[in-house]
Write a protein that binds this DNA or RNA. Structure first.
Lengths: 190, 190
DNA sequence: ACCGAAAGTGAGTGATCGACCAGTCATAGG
DNA sequence: CCTATGACTGGTCGATCACTCACTTTCGGT
C-alpha cells in the first residue's frame, strides 16, 4: 500500500493503531462501551480480533483512548470557533464556539454519540469517569478562559451542548412535530 | 385469584412484576441496557433468573417497562411542581417544575440515570428510541401546556434538565473545583 | 540471499450471556 | 383429602464474550 519512500513519520503499527482508533470510534458511537464487542471493532478495522489486543492492552484502554481522542477533536473545534471571533464580546465568542461545535458534529456525529456513551459509562466505570471528568473540566475552563464569559453564560453554553445530546438521541430533527421543533430550535445542523 | 379477604388489589404475580421493575430500575441505572444482565436483575429482586422471563417476555421488554415507569414518575413530579405554582407566571411554573424534578432525583437518582441510559440505548435500539421519543414528546408538550412558556423558555428548561445529566455523570457536586461549581451552579441537590 | 524483528492471524480458552424447559412446591376450591 | 392452577427454580442450551497463544507472513538491513 502506498509504498511511499518519502515522509512516513509513523511506524506501521502506529498507523494501525490510529486506524483502529478511528473505526472503534464509530463502533462505540453506536452501542457504547458495554454494547460494543472487540470483534466488531476488529472487523470494521479490517484486522483480526487478536491483533486488537496487540495494539491495545484491553477493551477498556481502547475505549478510553477513543474518548480522549474525542475530547481532543472537540477542543480543536472550539479553538476554531475562538479563532473566528477573537477578542469579541463573550457572547460572540461563545456563539462562534457553539457554531464550530455544531459544524463538527454535523460532519461527524459519532463524536457526539461517544460523548453520550462515555458519560453513561462514567456512572459505574471509575476509569471512564476519571477521563470524562478531566475532559469536561478542561473544556469548561477553556471555554471560560477564551470567552471571558460569566458563570451563567458558561453554564448555559454547556447546557445547550447537552441539549444537542437529547436532540440527537430522539432524532428530533427528523421528526416534524412541535415538541421536536422546540427542542431543536436554533441548533444548527449543517 | 384475588381471593384475599382484605384489600389486596394485585395478584401475587403482579406484585412480583412490580418488585422486579423497581429493582431492575436500580440495576439498569448503574450499567444501562447492554451492561446489565438478567441474572443481576433476578438476584437483586430475590428470584431466579428463569422467573424474570415469566414476568417479562425478554430483556428488552423489561428495559422498556423500566423506562416507561421512569417517565411516569417524572411526569408525576412535574405535576407536583405545577400544583405548587398554579396560575403563576410561566417563569414561576417552570421554576417550580424544575424544583420538583430536583427533589425527585435527589431522593431517587436512579430515575435520572435510567434516563441517561435510555437515551444512549435509543441511538441503536429502535424500540427504545420509540419509547424515549414518545416520553420526551409528552413531557415537552406537558411542560409547554402547563407553564404557557414560550419556545425558548421551554427549550431552556430541557437544556437545564440535560445539564443535570452531565453534573451527575461527572459527580460535579462531589468535586470541589471551579469547573464543577460552574456546571452545578443553581442546581438544587436536596 | 539470509536473518531477525515486527506485523498479523487461526484456533482456541473459560466464563458468561439471554433464553428455555421440565419439573417442584404451595395453595385454594371443592 | 384431592386436585388443578399458578408461583417459582435447577439445570442447561447454543451463542458470544474478552482475552491468549502458538504460529505464519512480511520486510528492512546487511
Amino acid at each position: 500500500m502506498a509504498g511511499a519512500p518519502s515522509e512516513r513519520r509513523l511506524s506501521t503499527a502506529e498507523e494501525r493503531r490510529e486506524t483502529v482508533l478511528r473505526t472503534a470510534l464509530g463502533a462505540f458511537a453506536a452501542r457504547g462501551y458495554y454494547g460494543t464487542t472487540t470483534g466488531e471493532v476488529a472487523k470494521s478495522a479490517g484486522i483480526s480480533q487478536a491483533y486488537v489486543y496487540r495494539l491495545f492492552p484491553d477493551k477498556e484502554a481502547l475505549f478510553l483512548s477513543v474518548v480522549e481522542h474525542c475530547f481532543a477533536r472537540i477542543r480543536e473545534s472550539l479553538a476554531d470557533g475562538v479563532a473566528e471571533a477573537r477578542g469579541s464580546t463573550p457572547e460572540a465568542v461563545l456563539h462562534a464556539m457553539g457554531d464550530a461545535y455544531a459544524r463538527l458534529i454535523a460532519e461527524e456525529n459519532t463524536l457526539l454519540l461517544v460523548q453520550m456513551h462515555a458519560q453513561c459509562a462514567a456512572i459505574s466505570e471509575p476509569a471512564v469517569r476519571e477521563v470524562v471528568q478531566r475532559g469536561v473540566a478542561r473544556m469548561v475552563e477553556y471555554v471560560r478562559g477564551m470567552s471571558d464569559g460569566g458563570e451563567d453564560q458558561v453554564q448555559d453554553f454547556f447546557a445547550r451542548g447537552m441539549l444537542c445530546h437529547l436532540v440527537m438521541a430522539v432524532s428530533a430533527d427528523d421528526v416534524d412535530a412541535p415538541w421536536a421543533r422546540t427542542l431543536a430550535k436554533g441548533i444548527r445542523h449543517y
